[in-house]
Each structure stands twice: as C-alpha cells, then as structure tokens.
Amino acid sequence: MEVQEHHGETTVTVDTPRLVEAALHLRDELGFNFLSDVAATDYLGWGAKGVSGYIGTHRGRDLNVPSTQGYQRLPRPKPRRFSVSYHLLGLRAGAPRVRLQAWVDEDEQVPSLVSVWPTADWHEREAFDMMGIRFEGHPNQRRILMDDDWEGHPLRKDYPIGGEPVRFSGEA
C-alpha cells in the first residue's frame, strides 16, 4: 500500500488482492460512505513520444498535424498498463475525498466492489466495456454503452479513433 498527495488530492494505491479489504476499511472505519466514480485509464504508450528539442513523431516531422512537439520532460513511468481509480467521498463536514487506485495488466482481473458499494455496478460495467478490464465477482459483467457484439474496447489507446468498420469504405 502506498499513499501519495498531489494537487491536494490523496491517492491510496493498493495491490488488487487487498482491494476489497481496503475498500471496506475506508467505508466502515474511515467513513467514506459514498462511491462517486470509477475511472479506468490506459497508459499504453505513456511517455513514448520524444522529449522537447525534437519536433515530431517516430514517423518524422509532420507540419499538418499540430501537437507533434514532444514533452518538456518525460513523465514518470507507471507500474502497469491500466489503472482503476475509485473516487470516494465521505458525506460529512469537510467533504473528505480519497482516490483508491489499483493497477493491472491486460490479462489480470480486479475484484468487484459491487458488494461494498452497489453503485459500482454500472461504473464497473463501463470500465469493462470501454477499457476491457474484467471485474472478478461482478454479478452482471456485460457491455453497457456499446452493443453486446461489439469488438474491442474503444477507450484503449490501441483502439484507433474513427476505426469502426464501415461498409463500402475502401471499395471502389
């Protein structure tokens, strides 16, 4: 477990096997009774662009694509590909907030928190639908925003924008 403080926000990082335990502790002992949001993030290609000084991408400089200039400095590396952030709130004076964060790779699962906060139901379905993160023990692990037979997970970084199959495209 690791606790970090950035921009006035507290982030508690836990290993996935202890996620439910941490969530119960935060809810029952520390009074974070309100799960506000579950946000999954894909860090594929994080920090892979060049550092300032070069202009361009691995294909070379492209004047027609803005924002191809590199970073001022490389961002800090991330431990795994995906993060799942649970934004918790205590409904009491001072409105304390904390971010509970778990890290997983593509084939790993996160324990579901539906039994801790029922509102996690749809949030976790969305994270599964958009990022392909599987939640172990979720009672209804299905897609929520995309069609049931949709292929791929649209918010992953390797899912191209405008990449959905369209009939007739490419046909003469």
Partner: peptide, 14 residues
C-alpha cells in the same frame, strides 16, 4: 477526472 502526461493534449478525461 483528468490525467495529463505533460503534453498539449489530455491523456484521459472521464
């Protein structure tokens, strides 16, 4: 929820 990698575009917006 906003994540920035230090560049000119958001890394993630939720």
């Amino acid at each position: 929820y906003v994540v920035s990698d230090g560049g000119p575009k958001p890394w993630r917006v939720k």
